[in-house]
């Protein structure tokens, strides 16, 4: 049986925990708003870019850009996007689960975010590079990552590059997704999901029907030149969008996790206070009883 003092102490400690989680919840929710807007704003660009690339890659059969070259897959490159900090629900463990599914010997990892890098290192997998990205991802960070990925692909270090990240669906739902980045052309899968969740119907139909009559595109000043410019840019942007999605997911997940923690702490305080009062009452009753018995014995 704990003493009243023990219970009082516990209440105090739970209260201060609640205060911290409450503060974190507030911070996360204000960051979340910004991150969500950023992630959603980038989607139309990504979708349109996707469509452009798709039709372009179909129409340039005579020319294969190095970034579109399909090879037999012996080594896989994976970009794992995680968070820097914990306390964000199941986000990182969901990602870790996807990572575990991959073959240890033939997969090379590139990570964005500290938690992912730690996990890869702890499980002794191959880590080629480790990147950080800020709370508000900037394009330069995405460019650095995508440059590394392109180098790895072009050098033949890896034969394809996938990305594992959490897509932001809404505040309560974030989904881990594995998508192919390189070679481009298979990339179209990357954003299909987006269009389902965020694009109006008309848009989807338009996307679904291939361009009228299957006319071939002309390129000016030439397929090599145009594709050479658009493909790296496309990759940079996709990586950027992935970072934005990951950030939006992180803040949303953290907000929800912290809200749950605060609610739990409040419930705990309530229960403990009840227990404390009961105990206090019992003690008083006991003391009264002792006093009256003592008096009766004397009298």
């Amino acid at each position: 049986m704990p003493s009243t003092r023990d219970i009082r102490r516990r209440i105090k400690s739970v209260k201060s925990t609640a205060q911290i989680t409450k503060a974190m919840q507030m911070v996360a929710s204000s960051k979340m708003r910004k991150a969500q807007l950023a992630a959603l704003a980038g989607r139309p660009y990504a979708v349109l870019m996707n469509r452009v690339i798709l039709s372009a890659s179909q129409d340039s059969q005579d020319f294969v850009h190095p970034l579109m070259e399909k090879r037999e897959i012996r080594k896989r490159g994976v970009l794992a996007v995680s968070t820097d900090k914990g306390l964000c629900g199941a986000l990182n463990s969901n990602m870790a689960r996807e990572v575990m599914k991959l073959d240890r010997d033939t997969t090379v990892f590139v990570t964005a975010g500290k938690k992912g890098a730690q996990f890869i290192a702890r499980t002794k997998r191959m880590l080629a590079a480790e990147f950080l990205y800020k709370d508000a991802p900037v394009f330069a960070e995405a460019r650095a990552i995508s440059k590394k990925l392109q180098e790895m692909f072009l050098n033949g270090e890896v034969d394809c590059v996938d990305v594992i990240f959490t897509r932001f669906v809404n505040t309560l739902t974030q989904r881990v997704e594995v998508r192919r980045l390189l070679p481009i052309g298979e990339t179209q899968m990357l954003l299909n999901e987006t269009s389902v969740t965020s694009q109006p119907k008309a848009e989807q139909e338009q996307r679904a029907t291939p361009e009228a009559g299957g006319l071939e595109h002309l390129f000016e000043p030439g397929a090599e030149h145009v594709l050479g410019a658009i493909l790296p840019h496309f990759l940079n942007f996709i990586v950027y969008q992935v970072l934005l999605e990951a950030k939006a997911s992180e803040h949303s997940a953290r907000m929800v996790a912290m809200k749950n923690a605060t609610d739990n702490a409040k419930q705990l305080i309530k229960d403990l206070t009840l227990e404390y009062n009961k105990l206090r009452q019992a003690n008083i009753t006991k003391e009264l009883l002792e006093i009256t018995t003592a008096q009766m014995a004397l009298g």
């Binding site: 452009v52 039709s55 002309l218 390129f219 000016e220």
Partner: peptide, 9 residues
């Protein structure tokens, strides 16, 4: 309208 399909920078 009815321009030939074209891609450019």
């Amino acid at each position: 309208p009815m321009h030939v399909p074209l891609m450019t920078q």
